[in-house]
Design a protein around this nucleic acid. Structure first.
Lengths: 352, 352
DNA sequence: GGATAGCCGGAGAGCGCTCTCCCATTCTCC
DNA sequence: GGAGAATGGGAGAGCGCTCTCCGGCTATCC
């Protein structure tokens, strides 16, 4: 931390290091960035000068000329605009949701070795979305990773229209010329259905998420189709909102209409957990009386009782892939958008 | 999005706007930043030109001259250096931990109205910490918010030594000249103890976190002292590691040694939940046979069964206060470090 | 009416860096 | 040994912005 040189009061600059090493600014820059060959002797002198002055390259100055922020935005987006309370409900749900943590983990996994760090942004209103767009247009970040919880989130389209590099998690409702990562939801649902069938369950019900989401549709379709293929033609459905309470409510409705149900497939773990609570309160044993399968395999799945049998979504890998795709789009602006689909896996625990 | 002007291929610059509006660069800058009086007529022309060109000020250029990044770093820090597996264990634990989400929520609450966004960083190794320090020294962020999960995390001291603005969550083990926010842990433990005493419990046990943490010490001390003051002199203790498994293991040990226990005070909700599982597995009813009190009041507390009675830590408020303090330090570098202590609150649910 | 103050716009100097030229030196090969 | 190629360092022009200074203008006051 010894300064000594930088008589210019502030932090030492390239100029200071150059003077200390007795070379030009350009040479120091070359050594610092490891570009072009530089005489080992001079390299050494420069490195010593860097250490002596405690030099740290100024990021703003570098960005100004390279036109790269070396930063990406991680945008959590999509609360309903016209619902006044949506804003807080959403923030509460998603940021505290372990799903969010898993996304962060995956993104950081990819970014860290590259010494990059995500900027966290939340887009819940039209103003927020404009802000995200202008943030990128200002060059504060080179691209965006978007996680919407709303099927018709307009942000991806805005980003695409502005020609900004972006990758989205889960295919948006209306096609957008952006790369995205997604899960094979139909396959996940098929896995769940076949497991329940193998268990001999013949009166399954399902708790879906908001049916506007394509992913929700696919899970439902996959489940129904598989069941139908095995002769189970009618699968009662209740729609939930991904929250535990909504799962409880949905379960209660299903139980009232179909007291003889023997299996539940919920569109996420949290609702599955809610369903378990209700089932237990009504004296049903899990999995003996009712088998329950969730979706996601978030941290709750393993820690709740009974531990949840669930369809694992490799969120961390998917998030890391988003980052990788984004990097590709940033470095090669003309690269066409692609969709990477991940395979789900059934994780067997206690509930089914 | 109509461009039209910027013949300079890239994004429109101040220069482009100035030309379009028929004024000087300085005037455009003044209008954009709302500094000094500018003739309303000219202001209007400038605004029109801004809209017409689709101008967005370049952040790097601005930062270069203002010496402000208008960005702060949110650093999650503290895995044990010498334990090879600590890195992943930590990342998994903390990022997925709802606690982290609550911190983010609080920080964003403060930052958002100011159009700022946190950069997420993880510091688990000495190299990571050096990286955080140099990131700040590069001017990539104006200051850091540090959340350590390790009592003797060296990062705060490094930051302080480098003279960088930083605020830490929870007082570090060894005093560091940085502002911090903390909870009155003794008071929280007292609240829990008195509630158990009021319930008529006389054979309480407690599951602590890693005893190296000052907060853990205070919770334990506060619990013991309050109990002692009411005649309960011996409180069996088992140390946990804040994870559910560690809570389960601790509970099992306590149960083996003190089968007649009638109350458990756990140092966090997750361990309390683990304790509940073990107690139930051993046939103990909660709260009839054993009353359980957790700490934190994270999202799990309300959603697990039985819903947890717990000591609420206002994490969001604390995190927002961190951001506020940091802003103060950034704007007034000479402001002395302060500690803001928050009051806990007992939240009554089913478990006690 | 002239001197002084106040207001507002423009000119221009950088902020710290990268990167393209350019030039000096050494190497290579006939 | 001399022409050509390669190698490695320096000079200097900006990147897009802010901000100080300056100058021209109008308002104010004796």
């Amino acid at each position: 931390m010894s300064r000594g040189f930088g008589r210019s009061a502030g932090a030492p600059t390239l100029e200071d290091v150059a003077r200390a090493a007795g070379v030009s600014r350009a040479t120091v820059s070359r050594v610092v960035n490891g570009v072009r060959n530089v005489d080992p002797v001079i390299q050494d002198a420069v490195r010593r000068a860097v250490a002596a002055t405690g030099y740290a390259p100024n990021r703003a100055a570098r960005s100004l000329v390279t036109r790269r922020a070396e930063t990406i935005a991680l945008v959590v987006s999509g609360a309903d605009d016209d619902s006044p309370s949506a804003s807080t409900a959403f923030a509460g749900r998603t940021v505290t949701d372990p799903f969010f943590g898993r996304v962060v983990t995956g993104v950081v996994q990819f970014l860290r070795p590259r010494s990059m760090h995500p900027v966290l942004m939340f887009a819940e209103s039209p103003a927020d979305r404009d802000h995200v767009v202008s943030y990128l247009r200002q060059g504060s970040a080179d691209g965006a990773l978007v996680v919407s919880n709303h099927a018709d989130d307009p942000l991806p389209a805005q980003l695409a229209a502005a020609g900004l590099p972006a990758v989205v998690f889960a295919r948006p409702a209306l096609p957008v010329p952006l790369s995205c990562v997604d899960l094979d939801h139909r396959e996940g649902a098929r896995l769940a259905a076949e497991h329940l069938l193998a268990l001999g369950r013949a009166r399954p019900v399902t708790i879906t998420g908001p049916t506007a989401l394509p992913a929700v549709q696919e899970r439902l379709g996959g489940f129904r189709d598989t069941m139908a293929r095995h002769g189970v033609t009618a699968v009662p459905v209740a729609e939930g909102g991904f929250s535990q309470e909504s799962g409880e409510a949905a379960m209660a409705r299903l139980l009232a209409r179909h007291p003889d149900l023997d299996a539940v497939f919920a569109a996420n773990d949290v609702m599955a957990q809610g369903a378990c609570h209700v089932l237990r309160d009504r004296g049903r044993r899990i999995p003996e009386d009712v088998a329950v399968i969730g979706f996601d395999d978030g941290p709750v799945a393993a820690s709740c009782r009974p531990a949840l049998t669930t369809v694992r979504q490799p969120v961390e890998d998917m998030a890391a892939e988003m980052a990788r795709l984004l990097q590709g789009h940033i470095e090669h602006p003309d690269r066409p958008a692609t969709t990477v689909v991940f395979a789900p896996r059934l994780v067997l625990r206690e509930s089914a």
